[in-house]
Amino acid sequence: MLLATSVVPGAAHAQATQGGEIRLLMLGDSITAGYGLARNEGPPARIQALLRERGRNVRVLDAGVSGDTSAGGRARIQWALADRPQAAIVALGGNDGLRGLTPAQMKANLEAILDALKARGIPTLLAGMIAPPNLGRDYGQEFFAVFETLHRERPDLVFYPFLLDGVAGDSALNQADRIHPTAQGADLIARRMLPFIETLLDRVRVSAAG
């Protein structure tokens, strides 16, 4: 029999060190999927390794699909939930920008994903994205405003403003296509996100055997 216990901030860490595994879904595109990298080098694997180094028993569920837009994430969110995650990271939007899709479409798709997670009581971290500069200043501002607006409208979200913070634009941290991080870049993504992810995990309701 499973008994759900409410976890106050910090308590999830204590329970995780006692053996209760937390399943953390990372829903994303090729960045999440670790395009061009070995399986143990992508962001999900690095996040899992770093969390375990800190004593947190977390399994990161890699739900990254290369080429996926926010619409693709919306189409498969129910499938991803079949793995019964207890927390989630939503890291979509990069391909919406690369394809010049409308920010309004992206917002509607992200809202549907966030609604599906909220309906299951799953604490969520939303990772923002910045549009390519060639699409113009107005598009870029409207694009980024989607993430800021979702954060403002949903104070329960943990918000990480830019998934590629510290990595985008650095040739030493990106592959030859200048889009996908190298192993070093993926590791930096994981390390920069780590404090935000730990905040997320402290909101998890851990299920313990009773």
Score class of each variant (00 low, 15 high):
T199Q: 15
A16R: 01
V146K: 00
L188Y: 03
A119F: 07
A131Q: 11
A172W: 03
F147L: 04
P195R: 15
L150G: 09
G28C: 07
A104K: 12
L150S: 10
A87Y: 12
V90C: 12
R192K: 15
V90W: 09
A208R: 03
L201R: 06
T149Q: 09
G73P: 13
E148F: 02
Q48K: 04
V58Y: 10
Q86P: 02
G185A: 09
S30N: 05
A38W: 07
E153Q: 10
A88H: 13
G67T: 09
L3S: 04
P85V: 01
R76Y: 09
A14P: 00
L2W: 08
G140W: 05
A87S: 13
A75P: 00
R56Q: 10
A186P: 13
V7A: 15
E148N: 14
G100R: 09
A127S: 14
A14K: 14
S171G: 06
D156Y: 10
R39A: 14
M26I: 00
G97K: 04
P161T: 09
D96T: 09
L92M: 13
E111F: 02
K118H: 12
A33Y: 09
A168M: 11
L157K: 04
V158E: 15
F162I: 15
L101R: 15
D83C: 01
L81E: 09
G10R: 06
T102E: 15
T199P: 02
D165P: 00
L150M: 07
V158G: 07
R203I: 00
I89M: 14
I47P: 14
L92G: 00
N95C: 04
V206Y: 01
R52V: 08
P161V: 10
Y139C: 14
A87T: 07
R137K: 10
R74K: 15
V65Y: 06
A127Q: 08
L188F: 02
A104D: 15
Q48P: 01
G100K: 09
S207D: 02
A190Q: 10
G210Y: 04
V60S: 07
L2R: 07
D96V: 06
T17H: 04
S70Q: 12
E53V: 05
S171F: 03
S30T: 04
R203D: 08
A16Q: 04
R191D: 09
A116F: 15
T199D: 14
A33T: 02
V158A: 05
A190D: 13
H13L: 10
T124Q: 11
P195W: 14
P9K: 08
D177I: 01
L173Y: 13
P132Y: 14
D96W: 07
T124F: 14
A172C: 04
T149G: 05
E148P: 00
M106N: 11
D83G: 01
V167W: 12
P161S: 05
E148I: 02
A38V: 00
G100S: 05
D62L: 02
M129W: 07
Q105A: 13
A108C: 02
V8A: 09
G42F: 09
A209Y: 03
A209M: 01
G121V: 06
A49D: 12
P9L: 13
D115C: 01
L92I: 11
G166A: 12
A49G: 05
L201P: 07
Q175D: 08
G55A: 12
R76S: 11
D177M: 03
P103N: 03
L200R: 05
L200A: 06
A38R: 11
G140Q: 13
I89H: 11
R99A: 13
A16M: 08
